[in-house]
Computed example of a mutant assay.
Amino acid sequence: MKTLFKSVVLGAAALALASAAPAVAQDKTKIGFIYVGPIGDHGWSYRHDVGRLAIEKAFPGKVETTYVESVPEGADAERVIQQLVSKGNNLIFTTSFGFMEPTLKVAQRNPKVFFEHATGFKRAANVATYAARFHEGRTVIGTIAGKMTKSGIVGYVASVPIPEVVSGINAFTIALRKERPDAQVKVIYVNSWYDPGKEAAAAKALIDQGADIITQHTDSPAAIQEAEKRGVYAFGQASDMAKFGGKAHLTSIIDNWDKYYVERTKAVLDGTWKSGDIWGGLDTGMVEIGPYNPVMPKEVVDAAEAVKKGLIEGKIHSFTGPLKDKDGKERIAAGKTATDAEMLSMDWYVEGVSGDLPKK
């Protein structure tokens, strides 16, 4: 999903836009999607498929969409992407980090087809990249957790130890400890984006270790369901997961790709598509915060909304110094904020995260 950036600079000045070939003329523009998980995961792949449906709704009679779900990141992805090309798709969205190299290989062989790769950093004349600033949402829910926890222990069900995930853990922990300075975040990696059994087991283990709030960077609602069973609070991931834990679920970080997908489809239809990179946050609507559970006191809701507003207006940054890592080394100086490149290559934990960062 998923992002693995190593010392990559993505500032606006570095985003060179390259024109691609004109759109292919035909009765309907065919658009293909490749997903790393099932569309029924209620998380990452589900939300991308919601975006696919938004395209169909926006352009009735003008487009034809198709998708392939549960495609492993690796060699098999190249075969599936090439199949989408062979079936006449003019625009193809490849929606996981591990699809980056396969996307580039297929794109090189098919220069008249447009490709959009989620969370990647390599582009070409016919390959664009896009991602969302998920860490901003974690700053909001970290604020909520800091005000709602009683034990001061929060459990974090994580997928794989890559910068996208690590930066989210850190953003959450920083916000948490602004409200509860002695709070600790315990992390369990399940080494998968979607494995309901492992996600539930991780949540159970974290609750057994004293966590009274569970958050996650995995794709199924299993952690929330476990929290509901055990009587603790939880946050949803990628979509509104309230229906899976009516008492436990406080809110969700929601990925919203709809507007972006519609805009990029329109660009293909009118012949203005260009390669580039987008990294949208709360201000663009790519990241949203779901409805709040009524169990949350007004002061908690007000605090969450104030942080969200500050992030949207640029008055608050998820990573503002001074920030030290868990070993006491200063990583971001006082008065400074992390650059995009620093966030996208983050391989260290902030103070307050228990345990060591696993090596991939």
Rank of each mutant, 00 (worst) to 15 (best):
M241G: 05
D327E: 14
I141M: 09
N170P: 04
E313C: 03
E179T: 11
V154Y: 02
K324I: 06
A248M: 05
A200E: 06
V185T: 11
D195H: 07
K336F: 08
K329A: 15
A118R: 08
R331C: 03
G88V: 09
A183P: 05
S345V: 06
W44F: 12
N90T: 13
V300L: 01
E313N: 08
I81M: 14
G120S: 09
V68Q: 07
K326L: 05
I153D: 10
P38V: 09
Q216G: 15
E56D: 15
K309F: 05
A13E: 15
P111F: 04
V190W: 00
A222T: 09
T29G: 06
D356L: 07
L269K: 14
G40E: 15
V185K: 01
I332C: 02
I169Q: 13
G335Q: 04
V262G: 10
G280K: 03
K259C: 06
I278L: 13
I92R: 06
Y67V: 09
V232D: 00
L323W: 02
Y156Q: 03
E64F: 09
G236N: 01
A267L: 09
E228S: 11
Y46H: 15
E263L: 13
P161D: 00
G98K: 01
G74W: 11
T337S: 14
T95G: 11
D340V: 12
H117P: 03
G88K: 12
T272G: 14
K360G: 15
Y260R: 15
V154E: 03
E69V: 12
P72V: 10
P297T: 08
G328H: 07
S354T: 12
D347C: 04
T3Q: 11
I316W: 01
I214L: 11
N170M: 01
L53F: 09
K87D: 14
L344D: 04
T339E: 02
Y292F: 15
I224Q: 11
K186H: 10
G32V: 00
I207N: 07
K6E: 14
P163G: 02
K150L: 00
K28T: 05
T3V: 14
R264D: 12
I162E: 05
K360L: 13
V68A: 11
Q184C: 06
F93W: 11
Y261A: 11
T66S: 15
S318L: 04
V300P: 00
A211I: 14
F59N: 07
N89H: 14
M343I: 15
V50I: 15
L250H: 02
S239R: 03
W273D: 09
N170S: 07
G236P: 02
N170I: 06
A124I: 07
Y35C: 14
